[in-house]
Amino acid sequence: MNAPLDAPLVQAENLVRHYRVRRGGRLFGEHATLRAVDGVSFALQAGRTLGLVGESGCGKTTTARLVLGLLTLTAGTIRVDGEILPGAGTARWRSLRQVMQMVFQDPLAALDRRVAVGRQVMEPLAIHGIANAGERRERALAILHSVGLQAHHFDRYPHELSGGQRQRVVLARALILSPRLLVCDEPISALDVSIQAQVVNLLLDLQAERGLAYLFISHDLRMVRQVSHEVAVMYLGRIVEQGDPDLLFAAPAHPYTQALVSAIPVATERGRKRLILKGDPPNPVSVPPGCAFHTRCPMAVARCRAETPALRLLDDGRRVACHLAPGMADA
């Protein structure tokens, strides 16, 4: 990136995070490498949303934590506004963290039960030494209002609020430093259906008002499409398909995306033929050679077992890592 002005807000290049583990979980077991994230690249522009989808253990959350610098990279680089993300704990990293905040799945676990929510919303200002006590309170009230809470909620404790209200408090606390990026890790999964829609609409409104960028992690493909400008499907630590969510979910090119789409129960189409995968995802300690998906792929051929497919650009603008994807058979 030569011109930082045009640089994406977040540029992730070839992120890798490996863990050394003992095989079988035993103390004297043989060393092995768990490939939690194994070469993930993406760019996220200001004001846009990148959705990360995949099943548990595919590396979505690890990717999110790498982006925030909460985990150290085994390899790869992260640039924020063109600047390489400094190491966690350094002064520069701390000041960059004002720009990047995180929202977790379980709001009750993310909040301190013994502290009134208003104080928790003000806390980031105190940590970063911004404003005086009176101004902090004023800002907290303003931000509570913008997430749809009222002044009387300021002195409430988390257990006095409903699940949806708690998630609004978590959002308010993340927003009070006026970040430019919110990393949302399953932000609505713990909420009831009627409340999920409220929170999703709020996220979209906040993005429109504040020009926020979201890294939105979810296993719910329909909600991901609702909020995302781009989506990346992960399987065993790698992106297998990436592109425009409308395109990707209407006509998935990778067999794994096809299986995910087909696994969604649809109210209006009973008895449609669905692609049901056999077995469970492999253990990330022993990722299958070649294409990691070949053990569950109904279309796998000999080449899939031998050669790892690279993420390639298709004519319609998406990227797919599959030897057999349309238009790539002879690639």
Partner: peptide, 24 residues
Amino acid sequence: RGLLSALPELTGPRRRLVAIPGVV
């Protein structure tokens, strides 16, 4: 009716979700 319109679709045009106000 509220539950049905609070659910997003996987394909077709995207529309703003109609949330049910308030809580249970």
